[in-house]
Design a protein around this nucleic acid. Sequence first.
DNA 1: ACGCCATTTCGATAATCATCGAAATATCTG
DNA 2: CAGATATTTCGATGATTATCGAAATGGCGT
Lengths: 114, 114
Amino acid sequence: MESDNVVRALGALAQEHRLALFRLLVQAGPDGLAAGAIAEALGVPASSLSFHLAQLTNAGLIAQRRDGRSLIYSADYGAMTALLGFLMENCCGGAVCAPAAPCDTRDKTERTAA
Amino acid sequence: MESDNVVRALGALAQEHRLALFRLLVQAGPDGLAAGAIAEALGVPASSLSFHLAQLTNAGLIAQRRDGRSLIYSADYGAMTALLGFLMENCCGGAVCAPAAPCDTRDKTERTAA
DNA sequence: ACGCCATTTCGATAATCATCGAAATATCTG
DNA sequence: CAGATATTTCGATGATTATCGAAATGGCGT
């Protein structure tokens, strides 16, 4: 991950609503959540939420897919792993001191198959 | 680390100059660097740098100490570890998937003694 | 005390960000 | 196609952020 992307990712997470939103999506897993469900969970007006979703999407931290008239958002575990990897790579003068793979990035289907 | 502190820490790192600054201090180690040396290394005017140093200090990511007429800044490894810990704790529905101790947080004296 | 040096604070300016209602877009159903 | 639902885009507003020169502060040497 490039330094520029890292700044954007950190900036996207550096906001109360968006941090809560991202954590919500992470906990929701690969199935994700519809925008409406997120708005309700966070108690944020739809238009405000849309703004925050756009920020996280632009930062590459979440993905969007359509299901009927709902738009489903889900966390991009790979991006999160890359971000953590960058922060850790650069914490001790270039030495990596901990594995940069915090999550099982496979989705439910893959885990079941494995 | 509380969610509020996390937002502040992420916000502090979500800026090109400050991310470079923090990485510089991390690489410099516990001895830290004087404000002037940092300004020169980053090519940022003194007054701008002072603003960024204040942001990082306020976020608890760096510490300040005086040496003569110089102010020496150094990375707070504990804060960085706590931040990484928070991000990892909260990435998989509460399960910690990787050790949250990326760095040897002891200073030179302690390492030598060990 | 005086001048020097390192750094911060002040003040002004331009830019970006957060918020949210109203209107527009896209999809489904009948 | 018309109506209902889910979500985004637009537009306006207030708040925060980044920048940097000039002036103020704090510590040092003489």
